[in-house]
């Protein structure tokens, strides 16, 4: 996977960022027709479309977008395990959004401010992601500080996904970022939102004992294989066809 992209673009990094966006977009797309209220159908689809747009640009930097999305095996994907986690209930989706979009926004802001190969893309995407982050925060507050039921669901979702948040701050080859500072900012921001949402900060470890936290190395969780099977089957059933 080294010679496929333009010489100036670090392919590993393009795949890491591109796969994050692609996989999360896919998960959000699964909400279509199932959202808790019609207005939220529109909101979730907007976020999914933003992410898919980012994914297409990023994957195109690394090669052919469709070949990369549809013809790679599970072990070749470089996305975080966090984004491949199933939607669960709306609280799980919002917790996943909160953790990821906070990370993505902080990272993209840093990339946009630099002069690396991802700066132009990050400058555009960071505006979209700012909105995703805002959407996640607004809903975290409402679910956390809404009813007893919603509080409990939000709390348990935040806890369940906590162990997937450590992997976000492993340095990615080709991305110039101050990972330690990024992590500190992330922690500060998430703590603040959860605090306002009356949700206790989860206490467990931020990485799992064995594979949790290894998405960047191509180790994924079981649900991811099924997700890819569904996503890729039609494309793979017609080798060489164009759509």
């Amino acid at each position: 996977m080294t010679a496929t992209g333009p010489a100036t673009v670090p392919v590993t990094a393009a795949l890491a960022l591109g796969d994050d966006a692609l996989v999360l977009s896919h998960r959000l797309g699964e909400w279509a027709g199932h959202a808790p209220v019609l207005e939220e159908e529109v909101a979730l689809a907007n976020i999914a479309l933003d992410l898919l747009g980012q994914a297409r640009i990023l994957l195109s930097l690394a090669g052919d977008e469709d070949e990369l999305a549809y013809l790679r095996e599970e072990r070749a994907f470089r996305n975080l395990q966090l984004v491949e986690q199933p939607n669960g209930d709306f609280a799980h989706t919002i917790a996943r959004q909160l953790y990821f979009s906070t990370y993505q926004q902080l990272l993209y802001a840093e990339l946009a401010a630099g002069d690396g190969p991802f700066a132009p893309l990050a400058a555009k995407a960071v505006k979209e992601v700012l909105y995703h982050r805002d959407h996640a925060e607004q809903w975290t507050l409402r679910l956390g500080d809404g009813t007893e039921t919603s509080h409990e669901r939000m709390r348990s979702a935040c806890e369940a996904l906590w162990k997937f948040t450590g992997e976000m701050f492993q340095p990615v080859e080709g991305l110039e970022a101050d990972w330690a500072r990024l992590e500190a900012h992330w922690q500060e921001s998430v703590t603040d939102v959860l605090d306002r949402a009356t949700i206790p900060l989860p206490e467990g470890p931020r990485t799992g004992a064995w594979s949790a936290g290894a998405g960047r190395q191509g180790l994924h969780t079981e649900p991811f294989g099924r997700m890819l099977a569904e996503m890729q089957h039609l494309h793979r059933s017609h080798p060489g066809a164009s759509w």
């Binding site: 692609l22 896919h26 797309g29 699964e30 279509a32 479309l49 898919l52 747009g53 994914a55 297409r56 994957l59 977008e65 469709d66 999305a69 549809y70 569904e230 996503m231 089957h233 039609l234 494309h235 017609h238 066809a241 759509w243």
Partner: peptide, 11 residues
């Protein structure tokens, strides 16, 4: 949506 055969078609 989850089975669209190209990213363009999916969008």
């Amino acid at each position: 949506i989850t089975r669209a055969p190209s990213l363009r078609r999916k969008a």
